[in-house]
Amino acid sequence: MGAEEDKKLIIDTLKGKTTKTKFYLKDFNKMFPERRPREVSKLVNEMVAEGLLEYWSTGSTTMIGLKGAGIQHEAEDSDQ
């Protein structure tokens, strides 16, 4: 699979989740069981840099989701 296809798979998988908007790195590893986890984390970080995904952090743990999806800090009551 090429990089663009990998990114599409990630975006499609995240869009297909209806109950969750933020994911652990481990969840992305499950999408590519044949890949080394550190290759997957590099891909995810690249997608963040491209503005496709975004980090969400508590300070101790980092989660990753589609950019703008889910509860944003200032928009808890909005449809986002």
């Binding site: 970080n45 963040v48 840099a49 975004e54 980090y55 969400w56 952090s57 508590t58 300070g59 980092t62 989660m63 944003q72 800090h73 200032e74």
Partner: peptide, 20 residues
């Protein structure tokens, strides 16, 4: 304080801890 956030600098995924 709310729990967590998306604050950060471009290209980094650490070093900034969002507090709202």
């Amino acid at each position: 304080w709310k729990h967590g956030g998306v604050a950060g600098v471009f290209g980094y995924g650490g070093g900034v801890i969002g507090r709202y």
